[in-house]
Simulated assay, not measured.
Amino acid sequence: MNKYTLGAVAGALTCTFALEAAATEWNVSVWGKRRAFTEHVEKLAELVSEKTNGEFTMNISYGGLSKNRENLDGISIGAFEIAQFCAGYHPDKNRVITVLELPFLGVENLEQEVAVSNAVYAHPAAVDEMAQWNAKLLMTSPMPQYNIVGTGEPRDELAEFDGMRVRATGGIGEAFELVGAVPTSVTSAEAYQAMESGVVDTVAFAQHAHLSFGTINQADWWTANLNPGTVNCPVVVNIDAYDSLSDAEREALDSSVSEAIDHYLVNYGELLKRWDTVLEEKGVEKVMLSEKAIADFRAKAAAPIRDAWIADMESQGLPGQDLYDLVEKTLAEAKSGS
C-alpha cells in the first residue's frame, strides 16, 4: 500500500471517528415497564432522533440504570442524562414541587395537571432547588386523581378507613392518616406484593399503575370518586449534559417536549375511556362514596395539610404561600380557559 493510499485510509478513518464523535447518545432512567406513564419519554426520544436525523438518540432503560428512588441522585452525579422520579419518594430533596401533591387541590383533568405543574416548575424556587441536584425540570408526567383498590368488603364510608393499611405517598398518604388510615410508602413496583402478602389492605394509584403493577388483579373493589389528589412525577435532565448540547440538539429537545406531552395526553385518554371495561373484565366492583363522605374527608385533610405545608416551607426559607397561590391562580385560569 503506497503512501497516498495510506493517507486516504487515514483520512477516511479520521472522518469516520469525527462523525461518531459528533453523535450524541443519552441514557434515560425510568422503571417498571413501558406504559402510559412513560409514553411521553418514549415519544421524546423518537422526536429528538427524527429531528436530528439520528444524530441525537436516547437509550431508555426500565430499571437497568437505577432504582426509582435513586434516579435524582443518579442525575446529580451524571450517571445518566435524563430520569423520571416522583416527588413523594424523597420530599426532602424536592420540597418545592410537593405543593403539587397536596390533597384536594381541585384539579379535574390531565390538561389542568400539566398547567399547574408547568407553572410550579418554572418558579425560581423550583429551578434553584433542582439545580442543587444538577437537574433541570423538563416535563411533568400528568396523572389523574388517585383512587384506591382493595380486597374484601368495599370501604365506602369514611369511618371504614380507620385502621386501613394503604399504600399512599406524599400528601395523599397524609390525608389518609388524618382519617385514621395507616399509610405506607412502598414503591410502585412493591405494591402488588404488599397487597398480595397482606402488608397493605388497599393501594392508591392512578389507573395506569393499577394495570401496570398488577394491583387491579388483586382487587375486589375500586373507589371511582374518592379523588384525594395525585402525585407529581417530573422528568429531569442533567444540567451539564443539557448545557453541552449543540444549539440544534437543544432546539430538538426543547421543541419536542410539548409534542411529547400532547402524545401522552391522547394515549392516557384512551386508557381512561376503557377503564370501566377493564373493571368489568376483572370482576372489580366500582364503589361510589357519598358526597358527604368525600366532603368530610376534604374537611379533615385539605386545609390542615395545606396550612402545615405552607408553614413548613416558610420556616425553611421557601415561598410556600406564593407557591400555593400560584397553583390556585393557574388552576383557576385553566378552568376558565384563559
Rank of each mutant, 00 (worst) to 15 (best):
V257S: 05
T202V: 14
A219M: 03
H210Q: 13
D247S: 09
V235C: 03
L245A: 07
S258Q: 15
S244R: 08
V231A: 15
Y264I: 03
A219G: 02
H210K: 02
N227A: 08
Q207E: 14
V200M: 08
V231P: 00
A248G: 04
Q218F: 06
A206G: 15
Q193L: 11
A219D: 07
L253W: 00
Y264E: 09
Q218K: 13
C233R: 05
W221T: 06
H210F: 08
L265P: 11
M195D: 01
T215G: 12
E249G: 01
P228H: 12
W222P: 02
C233A: 12
A206V: 14
H263T: 04
A252Q: 07
V200D: 08
A209C: 06
V235R: 08
L265Q: 08
N225Y: 02
S212I: 05
N217K: 14
P228W: 05
G214V: 02
L265M: 06
N238L: 00
C233Q: 03
T223G: 10
C233T: 06
Q207R: 14
S197C: 00
L253A: 05
A248I: 11
R250H: 06
I261T: 08
Q193R: 12
A219R: 10
D220M: 05
H210S: 11
S256E: 06
W221F: 09
Q193T: 11
A219N: 07
E259D: 15
Q218A: 09
N238Y: 05
S255P: 03
L226K: 08
Q218V: 06
D254H: 01
